[in-house]
Design a protein around this nucleic acid. Structure first.
Lengths: 326, 326
DNA sequence: CTGAAAGCGCTAACAG
DNA sequence: CTGTTAGCGCTTTCAG
C-alpha cells in the first residue's frame, strides 16, 4: 500500500480511503490511486485490515458434513450474503475431536461468530471461548450443559403429527425406526414416539427400534417390527437416511405398509407412492440462526434464546394408505 | 500476549515459544507461562500470526453448492486435514458474480491456495490474482482461456463406455439426455455422445437432447426420444439429477427402456432395477487436487498440469436389459 | 485533503 | 536459554 502511495504520489491515508470507498477523496486523486493500484497489481490484505479493525466480517459454519444435503446451510449462506458477511464452512465429520479442532481454529482466526451443529456430549472446550467473547449459535441440536443460543426443529410435534396422521388413517400398530439415541434429535424423536405409544394405551417396546445407521440393523428392525403375531401396519422413520433404507427394504419385502418419514428430501417424490414426510423448515432455521448470531455479535449481553421452528406434514401418498389387516 | 508475559514474569519471546511448542524453553517457565495463559484466558490470534508469517495454513474451496452431495469435497477435506491444512469452503451458487466475490475474498484473506469448481466463461478476474501469486487448482472443469492446473473426470471415456455397454446389450437406438451445453462437462459429454452416434453410423439429432435442468424440459425430451417411428430403446443421462428426473418419468411412462446414468449416487441402488452408472472416482479427484495444490504452493514455478481421472462403469441392472423392440 | 506516527498481536532477528 | 526490538500491512488519530 505504501508502494501504491508512492507510485500515485499521495499519502498512505489517501490510498486507504480510496480502497475503502471513502467519499471524501477528490475524483482526480481517486483516478491516480486506482491506476497505481492497477499498475502495481496491488491487492489489499484483509489479515492486516482485520487485525487493525478487530472484526473480520466472517462467520464460521461447523457442520456435520459439508458434502451432504443441508438446506439449512444453504439458507445460512444466503442470509449471510444479504448481510454482507462471508460464511466459511468446514465439516466436523460427526467427530468430537474434529469439531473441537474446527471450532478452535475458527476462534483463533477471530471469526465474528460461529454456527455449530454440535456433536458429542463434551463441549467443555467451549467454556473459555465463550468467556472470551465467542458468539455462537447451535443449530439442529443444543449444546448440552451450556447456556448457548440455539435453533431447533420441533421434533416432538413432528413425531406427534406423524403419529396422529397414521392413526387418523386407521393405523393402530405403528412402528418407529430411529437413529442412535446418543444423538440428541434421535433421542428427542424416540422419546416423543414412546409418549405417543403410551398415550394411545399401546405398550410394545417391539414397536420402537433405534440404533446406529447400518443397513443390516435397520432391515433387521423392520423385519421384526413387521412380523410376529402383531405386526405393525405403518412405520415412522426417524430421518432421511432411515427413510431411504426403509423404502429399500420395502421394495423387496412389503408393499402394503404405510410410511411417514422425518425430513423431506429429493427422494420423497421419486418413490411410489410418493413419500409422506414431516418436513423441517430449513429456510426459517437458517434465517433464524443468522439473525440470532448477528444479534449476539452486536450485543454479547443479549439473553440466551432457544428457538423452536415448526415442522409441517407433507402428505404425498405413502402415509395415507389404510392398514392391510386390522 | 504481552499481558501473559507480564503475568508470568517472562519475556514476550518466551510466551511465543511456549505457545508454539518450542522445545528450548525451561520446564519451569513453561509451567509459569501456561498458568498465566489459563489465568488470563489468553487465546492466540491467528490473524497476527499469519500476517507476520506470510502464510495462513488455509486452503479455500469454492464449490458450486456446499449443501449438495459432493464426494470430492469430502475427499479434499480429508486429504487437507492429513496435511495439517484447514479447508474453508463457500458456495458459488453457480453464479459468476458470487464465484468472483468468493474467490477474491479468499485471495484478500491470503489463503495459501484455492480449489475452484469454475462456473461461467469469464475468468478474467483471476489474471491479476494469478500474476500476484495465487495458487489455484480447478476441479471438475478447466478454467477456460487460462493456463491453470486442473483435475477432471474422463467424460469422453465415460460416455463411450456407457454407449458401448448399451450396444453390447443389443441396443441400436440410444438417446442422450444432457445438461445445458454451456456447462463444460455437459458440453464434453454431449460431444462425446455425438461422436459415438457418428461412429455407429447413426445420425439422428432426435437422439440427443440437452438443455437446462428443468423437469418440464427433461420429460418433454424423453417423450420425444421414446416416441415416433424410431423410438430409442435405451437412454444415457448426463448427470445425477437428470438420472433422477428420467427415472421419475419412466416410473409413470415406461418400464422397458434401458438406462445408464452419469454420476453415481445413493439413489442408484434405490431404484428397480438398480441403476447402472458411470461413476467418477471422487476420492482420487480430491486427493489429486490437494496434491496438485500443495505442489504449486510449494513451488509456484511448477509447470501447469491437467490431470484426467478415469471413470468406471457400475453395472447394476438398468443398463443390461435388452431392447424391447428391434 | 496531506503527512507523520502509533498500534492491532504476533514472530524473528539480534544481542545478552 | 532469555530480553529487546523491528516490522508484517493496515487504519486512525492528530496536527497541518
Amino acid at each position: 500500500m505504501v508502494d501504491v502511495a508512492r507510485e500515485a504520489g499521495v499519502a498512505l491515508r489517501t490510498v486507504s480511503r480510496v480502497v475503502n470507498d471513502d467519499a471524501t477523496v477528490g475524483a482526480e486523486l481517486v483516478e491516480r490511486v486506482r491506476s497505481a493500484i492497477a499498475a502495481l497489481d496491488y491487492r489489499p490484505d484483509e489479515r492486516a485490515r482485520h487485525l487493525r479493525l478487530g472484526v473480520t466480517g466472517t462467520l464460521g459454519a461447523a457442520v456435520r458434513q459439508l458434502s451432504h444435503v443441508n438446506p439449512v446451510l444453504r439458507a445460512v449462506e444466503r442470509a449471510a450474503r444479504a448481510a454482507g458477511l462471508m460464511v466459511l464452512a468446514a465439516s466436523t465429520e460427526d467427530d468430537e475431536k474434529i469439531e473441537r479442532h474446527v471450532v478452535e481454529s475458527m476462534c483463533r482466526r477471530r471469526f465474528d461468530g460461529i454456527l455449530l451443529e454440535p456433536i458429542g456430549a463434551d463441549h467443555g472446550y467451549l467454556v473459555p471461548e465463550l468467556a472470551a467473547g465467542l458468539s455462537l449459535v447451535a443449530v439442529d441440536r443444543p449444546v448440552l450443559g451450556l447456556e448457548v443460543d440455539c435453533v431447533l426443529s420441533d421434533n416432538v410435534a413432528g413425531i406427534e403429527t406423524a403419529f396422529a396422521h397414521l392413526v387418523a388413517h386407521g393405523h393402530r400398530r405403528i412402528a418407529y425406526i430411529g437413529d442412535d439415541e446418543r444423538i440428541y434429535t434421535a433421542q428427542e424423536r424416540a422419546t416423543a414416539f414412546r409418549a405417543c405409544l403410551r398415550a394411545q394405551g399401546g405398550a410394545a417396546d417391539a414397536m420402537i427400534h433405534t440404533g446406529p445407521i447400518q443397513r443390516e440393523r435397520i432391515h433387521h428392525a423392520l423385519e421384526s417390527a413387521l412380523s410376529g403375531p402383531d405386526p405393525a401396519t405403518a412405520v415412522i422413520t426417524g430421518n432421511a437416511t432411515l427413510s431411504v433404507e426403509t423404502v429399500r427394504w420395502f421394495r423387496d419385502h412389503a408393499d402394503d405398509v404405510a410410511i411417514v418419514g422425518f425430513d423431506d428430501s429429493e427422494l420423497a417424490t421419486l418413490l411410489r407412492p410418493d413419500l409422506t414426510v414431516v418436513a423441517q423448515d430449513d429456510a426459517a432455521i437458517g434465517d433464524t440462526a443468522i439473525t440470532m448470531l448477528r444479534t449476539r455479535i452486536a450485543d454479547p449481553a443479549t439473553p440466551v434464546r432457544k428457538v423452536t421452528v415448526p415442522v409441517t406434514l407433507q402428505a404425498r401418498g405413502s402415509g395415507e394408505t389404510p392398514p392391510k389387516r386390522t
